[in-house]
């Protein structure tokens, strides 16, 4: 067991966990941050995407130890003050989901994309988002939502 201090959504959390325990399970089972989903446990589907120092990572493949000392952001951080992030709003406006299970991972990947490329092309989106699976097949709407949020960002 290791005693780790994790900086999650701006707060410090001390956890006693096996050091190789994936970050995903610590977020979900110890910190009750269940917005981050298990989809495959193999880094193949993107449902567990969180930001680590601003970069998107698959939390199912990220040992907790390696996340210690870094800034961890989950879907719950985006609307912490009750106001939706522009990409969350865009997902609602485009209704870019059906069952919604992939949505937190999609949004976190999209937030990272918009941070590095405020006006992404379609190709940028395909390139960046191809590791996120939506089995309901809402890809066209997700692309539209990212463009919509990018447009809003340009206006504000």
């Amino acid at each position: 067991m290791a005693s780790l201090t994790l900086l999650v959504n701006g707060s410090e959390h001390k956890v006693e966990v096996p050091p190789s325990e994936p970050l995903l399970y610590i977020l979900r089972n110890h910190l009750d941050l269940t917005g981050t989903k298990y989809g495959c446990g193999e880094g193949q589907c993107g449902a567990c995407t969180v930001l680590l120092d601003g970069r998107p990572v698959r939390s199912c493949r990220t040992p907790a130890q390696s996340a210690a000392g870094k800034r961890i952001e989950t879907i719950e951080s985006l609307s912490a003050n009750g106001e939706l992030h522009p990409l969350q709003r865009a997902f609602l406006e485009e209704e870019a989901f059906q069952c919604g299970y992939c949505t937190p991972g999609m949004i976190m990947s999209g937030v990272a994309l918009l941070a590095s490329k405020p006006r992404p092309s379609d190709e940028d989106i395909f390139q960046h988002m191809n590791g996120n699976i939506c089995r309901c097949g809402a890809y066209q709407r997700i692309v539209a939502a990212i463009h919509r949020a990018a447009g809003e960002g340009a206006k504000s």
Binding site: G35, Y38, L92, P104, I107
Partner: peptide, 13 residues
């Protein structure tokens, strides 16, 4: 819809 884009919806899992 809001519960899904904020990660607040509780699925069984």
């Amino acid at each position: 819809g809001r519960a899904f884009v904020t990660g607040q919806h509780k699925y069984t899992s």
